[in-house]
Each structure stands twice: as C-alpha cells, then as structure tokens.
Design a protein around this nucleic acid. Structure first.
Lengths: 223, 223
DNA sequence: ACAAGAATGTACTGGTCGGTTAAATCGCCG
DNA sequence: CGGCGATTTAACCGACCAGTACATTCTTGT
C-alpha cells in the first residue's frame, strides 16, 4: 500500500513545485518585458506546465505579477541574511555591507528590473504587500544598529540617518545595474567591464564611508 | 500675393506644431505607461489631431517612441546649457553642478521615466540615435574640463575619472526620482517631502565633493 | 475500491489595439 | 481658378492575447 517512499510524493502532481516553476518563469518574463509587455503564453511556454495552471494558481496576470514581485524581493532579501555584521567594528561592518550590496545587486539583475518596473507603475502593487514591507524593515534595523554602534565609538558622525544611509547605498548599487544599458550605450561598454566594476565598487565604498565619517576635511558648502 | 503675415502661418495646417503636439502627448503617455503599456489611441486623444496623423508623421508606434525619447533627451540636456561653470572655481563649479543636476532631475520626472523605460528595453532604441550620443558627449566634456582645472589647482585628486564622476552624480540624482515610488512605499513618503529633499541634496553634494577631494581623512580600505 | 475534490490538458472566444483604406480638404503654383 | 501634392478625417480590419469552458486524470479519505 503505502509501500514506497511517502516522504512527500515522488512523481506527478506536485503543486508546490508547479507554483515555484511558474513563479520563476514569471520573474524572468516580467523582468525582461515589463508588466504589459510580458505575455502569459510565453510564461507558460517557459514552464513545465500549461497556461491553465497559471490561472488556476494565480487567478490572473496581475495576481501572478504580484506574487512574482513578492518572490523576487524575498529571494534577494534572504540572500542578505548570511551577512553578519555584529562581529565587526562599525566601519568594517559598513564597508562590508556596502561592498556586499554592490555585488549582490549586480548578481540579481532580474530583481533590479522588477523593482524598476514596479517604479514605473508607481509601486501600486508593492503597496499591497506587507510581506515586502517587513523584509525591508529588518534591513533598516540592521543599519540602524550599525549607526548606533558607530556613533557610540565615535567612528561615525552621530547624526547619520539610517534610512538616508540605506538610500545612498541603494542608489549607487541599484543605478549601477538599472542604468547599465543606457549608460553603456552613451559612454561605452568598457565602463561595465569586470575591472571597471571593481574600481567602481571601491569608489562606491569609499564615497559612503567618507560621508558617514566623523573625521572629515573642512565642510564644502558656502555659508 | 504674400499680403498678410507670412511670418509662418496662422491657423490650419501647421505641420511643425502638429508634430510637437504629438510628441509632447507621446512623452507623457510613454513616461506614464511604458512602451507596450502606452496606447496610441490615448496619445491621439491627448492631441489636437487624430491617430492617423501619428502614423503619418512617425510611421509606427516605435518610430513615435524613438522620436519621443530623442525629444525628451534634447529638452533636458538643453536645460543644462544655461549653467556656466567656467567662471567658478573648480570646487564651487562642482558644487553647483551637483546641486543643479539633483534639482533638474527632480523637475523632469517624465525624462527620468523615459530613461527607465529605455533601460528596461536594454537601450535598444537609444543606440540608434547619434543625436543623443552627441548631447551626452558635451556633458562629459564639461565635467572633464572641470576635473582638469581641479587637478591643476590641487583642489581635486588628479586621478578623478570624469565619466565616473558623472556616473556618481547621475546615480544619486536619478535614483532619487526613479525609485521614489518603491522607496516611499517601503520607508514612508515623508522621506520625499520638500524639507527632506533639501537635506538629501546637501548630503549628495557633500558626498560627491568628498569623493573627489584632494584632502581626505585616512583611507578607509584594508591593505 | 470508490466517491469527491484537487489538479491538469485542450480548444476556444471576445475584446483590445496597432495599423490601414479610401476619400476629403487645404494651400500653393502657374 | 484649376489642378496637384501635402495634410487630415472617419470608418474599418485583422492579429494578438488575457482569460474561460469543459472534459479528464490524479490523490486521498474512508
């Protein structure tokens, strides 16, 4: 009867796997073509299953898009969890965080593109997902703790805003991937070679470190 | 014969004006909905004229899109020409350039969105336009000159790469607009209030100034 | 083993939307 | 003023594509 492995199930009819299969195909397709540019038939074609299943599990195109967006966020944010910064000194931790973020963004272009697309749509779908909001809150908490420690031991300015810091790190890391096509069309592809990326990562790390530093050269502004 | 005003022509049948009318409507529509999300009928509706005219002047949707992209670039880059930096000291000029770019991006959201969309499409249409390439080359020239002067009088590091500097300025100014929707959905809209924008502009200016500065605190990196 | 429901395949449809056809109108030149 | 090319209008078409109807197969509880 139950003879063989009932560990889960071995062969046909595995809903979870089907869902994941669809989501992964959906992320590729949406990332490549945008919300309205994406074709449900094309997503189905990339799948082991059929178009019918997409509607069965996700209702409609928008439902699929929302689920794909959530999945993309979850994957990327979970990838950040490996990093543990508490063991490092504040500045070393910051350096590590920035370099990691820079690389992590670069190795997840589909996520970047999903976020770009969501921005085109004014974050209408993101707003409905408290899952995603939670994911990001913890990201901020991590930085806030880092700032606290840095202020405490005097290596960072005490007035650094964690959200602003996160913003700055994101901006530089995100733009590097999001605007590569236009930028390299205008200024040459060499700018995105591996060597150049290493140089730019150093530049980005340095820029962030300098802007939180307690010790600075004279203030630049007038007045 | 030529009796009245032949200044141009006063009433019906003014091809240039029609073209411009269409382009302006197209930029709004494409910026709002993306290339495939944009509806030609909707563009026509925003126009004084009809859909047929769009095809008459621009051939097809893609031709219209390309023209709209070029126009958006031209408008924004021409807006930058007012700025003359040669009269200022290098660092003052840089400060002015960064602050201006930050504001200018913010006041041209449609342009930003067009570029986002073009990036989604891997800059496929931008690549065909040497008009746009020219516009951007002069932008780089301006910065290169600035770097040269800065290196000469010792206020800037001599090894600053003009393209990299342009990249950094663009990244911070661009992201501020492009990712406002998702960022404010995740971290609160207050982050984009006018007050906060002023604070962030200061932060951006400062970050850029620091990273080109000849005088620095101890280098952050290891090794 | 069998009913009941969950999961899946096939074939189709109705609306949407980029693009077109054919004819009218305008302005200019002789 | 008459004809010719540039411009404009209105109605239309055909492909594409999100979503569905319906039949079928698998899984599980009893």
């Amino acid at each position: 009867m139950s003879g063989q492995a009932r560990t889960r199930r071995g062969w046909t009819q595995n809903p979870e796997a089907v869902r994941e299969d669809i989501l992964s195909a959906a992320i590729s397709e949406f990332a490549a073509h945008g919300l309205s540019g994406a074709r449900v038939d094309r997503i189905a074609a990339r799948t082991e299953t059929s178009k019918r299943m997409i509607y069965y599990y996700f209702g409609d195109k928008l439902g699929l898009y929302s689920a794909a967006l959530e999945t993309a966020y979850a994957e990327v944010r979970h990838g950040e969890e490996t990093l543990d910064l508490d063991r490092l000194s504040p500045m070393a931790a910051l350096e590590r965080l920035v370099a990691f973020t820079f690389d992590h963004h670069r190795s997840n272009p589909d996520f970047i593109r999903m976020v770009m697309i969501e921005n085109i749509h004014n974050a209408a779908h993101l707003s409905n997902s408290e899952v995603i909001r939670d994911l990001n809150t913890t990201a901020i908490d991590r930085i806030a703790e880092l700032c606290r420690r840095g202020a405490e031991d005097g290596t960072m300015r005490p007035d650094v805003d964690p959200v602003a810091l996160h913003w700055q790190i994101s901006a530089l890391s995100f733009f590097n991937v999001s605007n590569e096509p236009t930028f390299s069309a205008l200024f040459g592809e060499a700018f995105f070679s591996d060597d150049m990326q290493i140089a730019r990562r150093r530049m980005v790390v340095e820029a962030v470190m300098l802007s939180v530093g307690a010790l600075r050269p004279a203030a630049p502004g007038p007045s």
